[in-house]
Write a protein that binds this DNA or RNA. Structure first.
Lengths: 225, 225
DNA sequence: CCTCTGGATGTCAGAGCCTGACATGACTGC
DNA sequence: GCAGTCATGTCAGGCTCTGACATCCAGAGG
C-alpha cells in the first residue's frame, strides 16, 4: 500500500527510490495533519515514506527537525540581502530590507506556512525548536553585519532587533485578513518601533533610573544626526 | 551513602525528608557539574536526592526543567514592577525599570548564574528551553502592559523589545569584567537601541521602502514631544 | 565479466526519557 | 482506632535516539 511512490520497476529503477528526504518531509506533514504531532511516531513517518526509522534519523537529527529543515535556505536568503546592500544605507534599514527580501517566499506558500505554524503553535517542543532557529537567524544577521564593519555591540543589538521585527511582522502577516505581504508588515513594525523608542519628553523624568551613572545620557534630546 | 541528608532519625523525623524539590535541584546541579549534562541520567539525579526517577518527574516535567524552575519567580518580580510603575511613565521606560528591578537577584548569585549559563550555552536542548522561558517573560510583559491599557500592537512590540534589551544586557553582564550590575547594562542597552532606531538623516533615503504606503511616516524628523 | 569500493539503506540491541496504573506507608482529622 | 490523603515507590511499557554491523546496488577499474 505504499509502493506506488516511484516508478514501479521499469525504467532502470534507481538503486533506491530517490528523494528520501523529500518523501520523509511530505510523509511527516501528512501524518501530523492526519493524527497530530504526538500521535505520530517516527516509525510511522518512515513507514509512509517506505523507509526505516533509522533512516529518518540519518536525515534529521530529531523528530522535530523534519518540520524545520528548510530554515537554512531562508537564512541564506536574508544574509545575502544584508551582504548586497549599498554601503551607505543605515544599518537598521539594511536589516529590514534584507528581511523583506524573504517576503515572496512566504507569499508563495501562504497556506502551507499557516498550517505548519498552527502545528508549531500547538506544541511546546516545536515552539522551542522554532525559537532556536530564529536565534540562528539572529546569529547569522550578526555575522553579516560584522562583515559590514558594524561594531560588535551595535550589531548584536541590531541583529536582535531585526529578529524581533521579523517575528512581529510575521505574526501580523499570519493573522492579516487583508493578505498584505510580509514586507508591508515589516515596514509597519519598524515604524511602530521608532515611535516607541522615541523619547517622549512629555512625562516627567523620574530620577531613579540613574543606578550608577547609567542615566547619564538618558535625558539627551534628539539631535544625533 | 546518602542518608545523611536530613536529621538522622531523632526529632520526630518527618514523614519523608523535606524539600524534595530543592534536593533534586541541588543534586542535578552537582551532577551536571561533575559529569556534564548528558552523562547524567534522571535516575542519577533522583538517586543522589534519595528519591526515585518517577518522583523526579512529578516535580519537573522534563530533565531540562530542573535547571529552569526558578524562572517563574523572576517573571513575577518583573511583572509586578510593571504593575507598580507610575501611570505617567513612558511605556518603554516602565519596562526597562521593571527589568532592572531584577538586578539584585542576579547580583546575589553571580557565580551560580554564570555556572548555570555555561551549562546552558553548551547544550542546545537547554538553550531551547531558555528561549522558551524568555518567550514566557515576553508574554507576561505583554499581559502586564495590556493591563496598563497599552494598545495590543504596541504592547507586543514593546514586550519583545524589552526582552531583547534584557538579553542584551544579560549577555554584557555575564561578560563584564568590571562587574557592573544588570541595571547598568540595561540602561546602556536602551541608549544603544535609541541610537540605532533614530533615523540617520545623513544617508540618502532610498525609495524602495514604500511597499504599499508603509513608509508614510518614515521621514518624520524628531520633534514628537 | 568480475571484483572492489562506496554510499544509502536495513537490522538489531540497548540506553535513556517519560507516562500511566497501582501499591505503600505515614500523618491528619474525626 | 479508622478512613482519607498525600508524597513517594514500584512496575510495565512506549517512544526517541544511537552505535555497530550487515546488505545491496551502482559505478570504476581491471
Amino acid at each position: 500500500m505504499s509502493s506506488l511512490a516511484g516508478s514501479p520497476t521499469l525504467t532502470r529503477m534507481a538503486r533506491w527510490e530517490p528523494n528520501a528526504l523529500e518523501r520523509l518531509r511530505a510523509a511527516a506533514l501528512e501524518l501530523f495533519e492526519e493524527r497530530g504531532y504526538d500521535r505520530t511516531t517516527v516509525g510511522d513517518i518512515a513507514a509512509r515514506a517506505d523507509l526505516t526509522e533509522r533512516t529518518f534519523f540519518r536525515y534529521f537529527t530529531d523528530k522535530r527537525e523534519v518540520l524545520f529543515s528548510g530554515s537554512e535556505e531562508l537564512e541564506k536568503l536574508i544574509v545575502s540581502g544584508v551582504a548586497s546592500a549599498p554601503k551607505t544605507m543605515a544599518p537598521l534599514e539594511v536589516v529590514v530590507e534584507a528581511l523583506a527580501a524573504s517576503s515572496p517566499v512566504f507569499e508563495a506558500r501562504r497556506t502551507h506556512v499557516r498550517k505548519r505554524q498552527a502545528l508549531i503553535a500547538a506544541h511546546a517542543e516545536l515552539r522551542e525548536r522554532e525559537l532556536i532557529k530564529s536565534t540562528r537567524l539572529t546569529a547569522a544577521l550578526l555575522a553579516s553585519l560584522r562583515e559590514r564593519c558594524v561594531p560588535q555591540a551595535t550589531a548584536a543589538l541590531l541583529a536582535q532587533t531585526g529578529t524581533t521585527l521579523f517575528h512581529n511582522a510575521f505574526e501580523r502577516w499570519i493573522e492579516d485578513s487583508k493578505e498584505r505581504d510580509l514586507a508591508h508588515h515589516l515596514q509597519e513594525a519598524l515604524i511602530a518601533l521608532r515611535l516607541l523608542t522615541a523619547e517622549t519628553g512629555t512625562g516627567k523624568r523620574r530620577g531613579k533610573t540613574s543606578s550608577k551613572g547609567g542615566a547619564k545620557l538618558s535625558d539627551r534630546r534628539r539631535r544625533d544626526s
